[in-house]
Design a protein around this nucleic acid. Structure first.
Length: 491
RNA sequence: CGGGGUGUAGCGCAGCCCGGUUAGCGCACCUGCUUUGGGAGCAGGGGGCCGCAGGUUCGAAUCCUGCCACCCCGACCA
């Protein structure tokens, strides 16, 4: 349909790359692995941010900002943490450039070497916990529940727009608590906040679970996650919430005077979602004509396209359009009126489909005569003729229906792609032919997990939270198992 | 870092093997006219250090040497 957009069935990954560029979401930057987020893409991210930010504040968190640079020594204070991130850190070694001796540009001034090198943050636990040490003296200072919106850098080998970039935008929440119980509750609360956001706003069903030891965040005691499924049958981790135990408190010596007069280490959590959610949003709902955006996150919810042969017609249509715009704005619906005469209606239709605008209204000479408008929905491409005075109510209903309908479509797809298997043969076969989530028994050892990963490229996405115990035997080793875990090939 | 590939206009490419007028095509862009209910047509126009540096030659996008960059496939990951 769209000019040059590859079909999902032919080359899913090419389809995704082209879609991101053609829909004006983002493009590659001069620096390898980094991206420029374009205004239309950033508008979607801003809506995500605004919604999440409110949810964080409603659950008692406040925003703060910590620096992008971290002294190198900080990173090594928590052993697992440094091991997890050391291989992908950008390092600042100098603070000055100078003219090259041959006059050809600038070079690093060797005399401007830093005493202690600085790490560009891959995540902020270390700076934040070193700061918390100064802020927390007593149980009265707890809980401390902060969030920051920031950029982080992880020097990845292979990058893809939104899904994995060297620099990405995210939010990271960091909380400190008096008791283990309270910290664990916080971890689960934020997992639920994320889940509500992804399901209600992104229209994407998730599976909540806990990570195995080998997939756990570096420095965490437990990592909880939400796993989503993309249209090509691969899983995408949409967000994580970590129970840190007292690991960082001990590493950064964060102690507080307890109610009973004793001195105790605080209990911590951290949780984050990133611009990767943009990738999930794009891949989950879109089709061969372009983006399909859930109305709650669409920067433009309705576009009005006039169809006219001459200036007088356009003026007459514009009068009707401004009436409709007022009607829709009063209902809190964002509308764009595209009266450019440099593009034909057909071109505009294709363009707004590519950009995923949920509802399109076309008004032409016929509609002027009949006091109607043509209303088309992006997700199913159904069109109908609606009386102008009923547009507001109709569109409001339609937006709600689209939001609901794309969620149900994604849910149906997801549910059809959860397969239970009881043998390694069936496991491999499902992965190769059908893809999706595969529920299987696992003996609980990292060794088996590793072997399966090497042999099939599938990883344990999570041990689902809402699942009953069910005795069985591991598909790989034949050892006893208490419950199924979820495997998938993942992004 | 191993294997494969590509660098020519904003984007996508041809030309290179076999050196030789002014480097060409499609899209996009600009101007004008006709168009406008599913990506319009015609006419005119602008835009190039042919990745970089050497070399061979009367002459290099084309041949040789070196370098650089990017993409794809593997090992790492929100």
């Amino acid at each position: 349909m769209s000019k040059g957009l590859p079909k999902r069935s032919e080359d899913y990954s090419q389809w995704y790359n082209e879609l991101v560029k053609k829909a004006d979401l983002a493009e590659n930057s001069p620096v390898r692995g980094c991206m420029v987020i374009k205004p239309y893409g950033f508008a979607i991210w801003e809506k995500m941010q605004a919604t999440l930010d409110k949810m964080f504040k409603d659950t008692g968190h406040r925003n703060a900002y910590f620096p992008i640079f971290i002294p190198k020594s900080y990173l090594s204070k928590e052993a697992d943490h440094v091991e997890g991130f050391a291989k992908e850190c950008a390092v600042v070694t100098h603070y000055r450039l100078k003219q090259a001796a041959d006059g050809g540009g600038v070079v690093v001034d060797p005399e401007a070497r830093l005493e202690e090198e600085l790490i560009v943050r891959p995540t902020s636990e270390t700076v934040i916990w070193s700061t918390y040490k100064n802020w927390i003296q007593s149980y009265r200072d707890l809980p401390l529940k902060l969030n920051q919106w920031a950029n982080v850098v992880r020097w990845e080998m292979r990058t893809r727009l939104f899904l994995r970039t060297a620099e990405f935008l995210w939010q990271e929440g960091h909380t400190a608590h008096e008791t283990e119980e309270e910290a664990r509750q916080e971890t689960l609360l934020m997992l639920q906040v994320y889940t509500d956001f992804v399901q209600d706003h992104m229209a994407l069903p998730v599976i909540q679970g806990v990570k195995t030891e080998s997939e756990r965040f570096a420095g965490a005691v437990d990592t909880y996650c939400m796993e989503t499924l993309m249209q090509d049958g691969k899983a995408l981790q949409a967000g994580t919430s970590h129970f840190l135990g007292q690991n960082f408190a001990k590493a950064f010596d964060v102690k507080f005077a307890a109610r009973d007069g004793g001195l105790d280490y605080v209990w911590g959590t951290s949780w984050g979602v990133s611009t990767r959610l943009m990738g999930a949003l794009i891949m989950a709902h879109s089709d061969d004509s372009g983006l399909v955006l859930p109305p709650k996150l669409a920067p433009i919810q309705v576009v009005i396209v006039p169809i006219f042969k001459n200036q007088e017609q356009l003026e007459a249509i514009s009068v009707v359009a401004s009436g409709l715009i007022r009607q829709l704005n009063e209902l809190g619906i964002s509308v764009e009126y595209d009266d450019r005469d440099t593009y034909k209606p057909g071109w505009k239709f294709a363009e707004y489909e590519l950009k995923g605008v949920p509802v399109r209204i076309a008004i032409g000479p016929r509609d002027l005569e009949n006091n109607t408008a043509e209303v088309a929905r992006r997700d199913t491409s159904e069109k109908q003729i609606v009386k102008q005075q009923e547009i507001g109510a109709k569109v409001k209903h339609l937006l709600a229906d689209i939001q609901d309908s794309i969620y149900r479509k994604a849910l149906k797809y997801r549910d059809q792609h959860i397969t239970d298997v009881d043998s390694y043969e069936a496991f491999k076969s499902v992965l190769e032919t059908k893809g999706g989530f595969v529920r299987a028994h696992w003996d609980g050892t990292a060794n088996t997990e590793q072997r399966i990963k090497e042999e099939t490229k599938a990883t344990i996405r999570c041990i689902p939270l809402d699942q009953r115990q069910e005795p069985g035997t591991c598909i790989y080793s034949g050892e006893p198992s208490q419950q199924r875990v979820i495997f998938a090939k993942a992004y």
